[in-house]
């Protein structure tokens, strides 16, 4: 359970074998706008690392750079001990490698992004069958078990457009779990939901944290972050302003910006 800036390292480094994700000095610019100005973090197996910060702080971009939905401008990304090879222009050097690594990272999006032309069951079996080559029967049984787990077994044959946001997001979590991911990436999973639907999604994520899933979570739900994370990183203007265990970050914030931020979202 380690996450540190390059310069300041008080906490012990993770054992390499336990390391799930390591991001080193990540920079990302969109044109002239530098969104990430050197972010480093590490998550060990079983960690729940949460990124918080205001709008435009770079937290979503940071998450999206990890599976190269955005190409970093510079920096290193190491997943499960394997460093992603990057070309000079920031694109992944090997399509095979990035596809293999992506197929082990379970991403959950703010806007759910379920495939609307497929039923919930088909959404959940799609990647196992067509990317990972899992036999159909096996993928089907596993998908049904996962839908059951997120409380949607009865909706297996329904198309996403006919479901509530909360149901869609729970299905999206089942889709991500179906690949048995080494790390789950949550990109503001409750930000697009009506307030009364947030709880059902958070409770699914809470269960995953409790069973020891490694997760990287970008969220605006501060109470939730405090409850499930074992490490919290506060990003401000593309830099890590402050980080530490949740009690420390939320309980005794040091920097003025973090104090200000926590006051504004309270």
């Amino acid at each position: 359970m380690t996450a540190k800036t390059a310069a300041d390292s008080v906490r012990p480094a993770a054992e390499p074998a336990d390391e799930a994700i390591r991001v080193v000095d990540l920079h990302k610019s969109f044109g002239n706008l530098e969104v990430l100005k050197g972010v480093s973090l590490t998550a060990s197996k079983g960690d729940v690392v949460t990124l918080i910060g205001g709008s435009g702080s770079g937290k979503s971009t940071c998450l999206r750079c990890i599976n190269f939905l955005e190409n970093p401008t510079s920096g290193r990304i190491v997943i499960g001990g394997e460093e992603i090879a990057i070309r000079a222009d920031g694109t992944p050097a090997s399509r095979k490698q990035i596809e293999r690594i992506r197929s082990r990272l379970g991403m959950v999006f703010q806007a759910f992004n379920l495939w609307t032309h497929r039923t919930l069951l088909e959404n959940v079996t799609e990647v196992p069958i067509h990317v990972l080559g899992v036999p159909k029967d096996e993928a089907h049984d596993r998908a049904m078990a996962l839908l059951e787990r997120v409380g949607l077994a009865g909706k297996a044959d329904t198309y996403p457009s006919f479901l509530s946001g909360g149901q869609q997001q729970r299905a999206a979590i089942a889709r991500a779990l179906a690949i048995d991911p080494s790390v789950m990436l949550f990109d503001e999973p409750t930000s697009a939901l009506d307030p009364e639907l947030v709880g059902e999604v958070l409770s699914v994520i809470r269960d995953l944290a409790a069973e020891g899933r490694t997760m990287l979570l970008v969220t605006h739900e501060m109470k939730f972050a405090r409850e499930v994370s074992n490490h919290v990183i506060y990003l401000s203007e593309g830099r890590i302003e402050e980080e530490g265990p949740p009690e420390q970050v939320f309980g005794t914030p040091q920097s003025d910006r973090l104090k200000q931020f926590l006051k504004s979202v309270a």
Partner: peptide, 14 residues
């Protein structure tokens, strides 16, 4: 919707 293509990419679909 761009997110549907992004989801395919995020799950390593060739």
């Amino acid at each position: 919707p761009i997110g549907q293509l992004e989801a395919a990419r995020a799950f390593g679909m060739p």
